[in-house]
Design a binder for these strands. Structure first.
Lengths: 185, 185
DNA sequence: CTGAATTTTCAGAAATTTCTGAAAGTATAA
DNA sequence: TTATACTTTCAGAAATTTCTGAAAATTCAG
């Protein structure tokens, strides 16, 4: 299993970024390798390619599966597990976002919601107000995120390409047909 | 410096989430404490409140300043540094997003761009195609993100509240006035 | 200036995370 | 079945990150 210079650079970079992205170096490098590889790789290919132990590959594979970024493919007559990316770059990115939201946002929304329930009605503390602001922000984000996740990729891409242009179009339409949606913002 | 039970729970939670958010426990707890505190806190307040060393507070303060999440405030006739949040919850969240994008996305876009330049025109490998896809995705994201950052908070909030509704409005307008923007998606 | 109050630094200790590799577990071809 | 080809597990080693606390540096009132 020989890699091109470009692939190697990319794999090493993914290893360096891994900890910032929420996983360890091996997981990062392994994802890069699998994504760039034309053909499915087995655990030995990977252990050899990345110079890590067989056990480490097994653990990293579990981690990547828990993120739903790879799946295993088996050929009849071959006992090896072949690891393949779970979709296009776009789909993998979406999956990473979804998983990170689940791990980085949901627990906090849950805790903040719970705390807000505990406050007495008479409490007018700054702390409570800040928690309420955070709760509102996290709920707004959560609903928006769910919506975005359910959009067709092409629609989403088109929307992103518009960028702030969306705001302009929206202002136009709301000028033509003023509605409820704007007033509470 | 006495904290309420709710504040304590919130601070502890921020400490637990910190590593997932890209900083260490002390930084997370300290941010929580500062955000919830009505009045500015000095380093000793914080060291005592969180049960950590004075040196650790100094390092965490530097880190929070590098994220532009806090700033120091000084009272004339008092030599202490008072640490205060650098804006509302909304502004802090925006700042975290901006900083994370800078640390988690920009370096990769830079590396991928560089690698794409290295490929020979004749290269039709899967690896190259994947890198190109990743480059396109990161550029799309980057431009969208810049646009969003420059929107007025109220416009952005209104847009997020619409969620996927934006897609519907957009389809409507493009049906009325079919343009260039959609065809390449 | 001087010196007391404060912040910063950083070497090494402590805590945490990651990795290895041998042993145990599992699946399947024969 | 059984033998074998593989995967998983996990105790402890290695690497990395975080934290402490004392010493150095800085700041500023007098």
């Amino acid at each position: 299993m020989q890699m091109s210079a470009e692939t190697e650079t990319f794999v090493v970079h993914f290893g360096e970024m891994a900890s910032r992205w929420g996983f360890n170096r091996t997981v990062g490098q392994m994802l890069a390798l699998i994504v760039l590889s034309e053909k499915p790789l087995n655990a030995d290919d990977i252990a050899q390619g990345l110079n890590v132990s067989r056990g480490n590959v097994s653990m990293a594979a579990k981690e990547l599966q828990s993120w739903r970024l790879i799946r295993v493919h088996r050929e009849p007559g071959d006992r090896k597990d072949y690891l393949v990316a779970n979709g296009s770059i776009w789909e993998l990115a979406q999956q990473v976002m979804a998983e990170r939201k689940k791990r980085e946002v949901d627990p906090t929304l849950s805790v903040v919601r719970g705390l807000l329930m505990d406050f007495d009605d008479s409490d007018h503390s700054h702390a409570r107000a800040q928690m309420q602001e955070m709760n509102d922000l996290l709920e707004l984000f959560t609903h928006w995120f769910d919506d975005v996740q359910n959009m067709k990729p092409d629609h989403l891409k088109a929307l992103m390409k518009m960028g702030a242009g969306v705001g302009r179009v929206l202002e136009m339409t709301s000028r033509l047909k003023p509605g409820k949606k704007d007033e509470e913002a």
